[in-house]
């Protein structure tokens, strides 16, 4: 066990953990930030997606020691007092059904739009291909991201 210092959502934490433990588990079980989800446990589904220095990253594929001097953003750090524009677009656009994939998708969408403010439908589909959703067929998710992009443009 070592003391690992993390900055998560702007807050500094020191946690005594095995530095090899996946970031996902430290966020959920040590810091109580359960917005980041556990699902496939093999690095495929993206439900565990967080932002590390702004880049979408699967937190089940990162040893916690690796993020010690980075800025980690989880779903709890998105939006401020209310919903971010992406979150609002997801709500308005009926993009969420069971909701379990949503935190990861919201973060991937934020990263996607930061990189590519005017994506095409194909670019959005490719941009969320690291996030599995079992409920929606992805159609309304793509539309919601497009709506958010359009709104930023205006």
């Amino acid at each position: 066990m070592t003391d690992v210092q993390l900055t998560v959502n702007g807050n500094e934490h020191t946690v005594a953990v095995d530095a090899h433990r996946p970031l996902r588990d430290v966020l959920r079980q040590e810091l109580g930030l359960t917005g980041t989800k556990e699902s496939c446990d093999s690095g495929v589904c993206g439900a565990c997606t967080v932002l590390v220095d702004g880049d979408a990253t699967k937190s089940c594929l990162v040893p916690v020691g690796k993020v010690a001097d980075t800025t980690v953003t989880t779903i709890e750090g998105v939006g401020g007092d209310g919903l971010s524009d992406v979150q609002q677009a997801f709500v308005d656009g009926f993009a969420s059904q069971c909701g379990y994939c949503m935190p990861g998708l919201v973060l991937s969408a934020h990263d996607l739009l930061a990189d590519n403010p005017e994506p095409t439908v194909e670019e959005i589909r490719a941009g969320i291909s690291g996030n599995v959703c079992r409920c929606t067929g992805y159609v309304k998710i793509v539309d919601a991201i497009m709506d958010a992009a359009d709104a930023r443009e205006r």
Partner: peptide, 9 residues
Amino acid sequence: DAADKVTGE
């Protein structure tokens, strides 16, 4: 339930 789901709450 939409807002709670997109915020992870």
